Amino acid sequence: MIIDLKGRKAIVTGSTAGIGRATAEGLARAGAAVVVNGRGTARVDDAVRQIRQAVPGSDVSGVAADMSMAEGVEALVAQVPEADILVNNVGMAYLRPYGGIEDIAKISDEDWLGLFQLNVMSGVRASRRYLPGMVRRGWGRVVFVSSESAVNIPKEMLDYGMTKTAQLAVSRGLAEAVAGTGVTVNAVLPGPTRSEILGDFMAEQAKAQGITQDEAEQAFLKTARPTSLLGRFAMTVEVANMIVYACSEQASATSGAALRVDGGVVRFVA
């Protein structure tokens, strides 16, 4: 299968590192003009430079904007008023090595609302601005990067799981709203991935315990994700491959779906 996205403009939010960074590079390799996004100018410029070096001749630009705020989304739209592909990837999690009810009760309103603003409302706001143009042109792709935590809620990250479930609801609802227009909306559900957030957390755990990162990741899988069929953390490029496919012409019959790249963690057939 050859994915050709020449002539398409793609925005990937939160794409200076991790899954977003791998996705931006994957879309650039497929020929799309890619807009990298992050909060800080230095990191955005660095990611743009790296992708241009990795994909010679690629059309890559960057916009520094904080997507957790409505003003940040408006700043992005002001610089990039139209897009054919929108990957709502930006997000974060508070990694807590606990999950009892007393611990959950200590999660502040600020943490709950902060995660919701970034993980959910960033995608709502961006989709609201870019989807109408896609519908008018008769082609478009929107992908929400959710998580297996959306359907396999982790008690140690209850606030995060809530936002990822919300993304599934938004994704499916938007897919229903644009049915029959040539625009598709899907969600991709990664499992444990060696991305910036979780990868760095595992590296810190490994250092604290005097073990390798691979050993720390194996311990995490055994205790927190024992149903993994992959038996290892996914690499960011493996998740990005699914996202790039969902953005392609070849994925024209896939919409309203929750596409799992979870290594088989979730134990149901769907």
Rank of each mutant, 00 (worst) to 15 (best):
G264W: 09
K6M: 04
A206V: 01
C247L: 10
A270R: 15
L221Q: 01
L76G: 04
V44H: 05
V87Q: 00
S146L: 07
A126F: 06
V120N: 07
G7W: 11
P56G: 04
Q50P: 09
S146F: 06
M162E: 07
V261R: 04
M69C: 15
A150P: 06
K9V: 15
L229E: 10
R49P: 08
Y94A: 02
G138D: 10
S127H: 10
D46R: 15
S108E: 14
A150H: 09
E82V: 07
G18T: 05
A47K: 14
T212K: 11
L118F: 11
Y130M: 06
G62Y: 03
G100L: 12
E102N: 15
N119P: 08
S252L: 05
A33G: 11
T23F: 03
A208Y: 01
G180N: 02
S61K: 05
V87D: 03
I11T: 06
N89S: 02
Q50M: 14
V151A: 13
A175H: 14
S228T: 07
D84P: 03
E82R: 05
G173E: 04
L86D: 01
V36L: 10
A32N: 10
T23D: 06
A75V: 14
R141C: 08
E156Y: 11
V183H: 01
N88D: 14
T23I: 12
R43C: 11
G210D: 08
G91F: 03
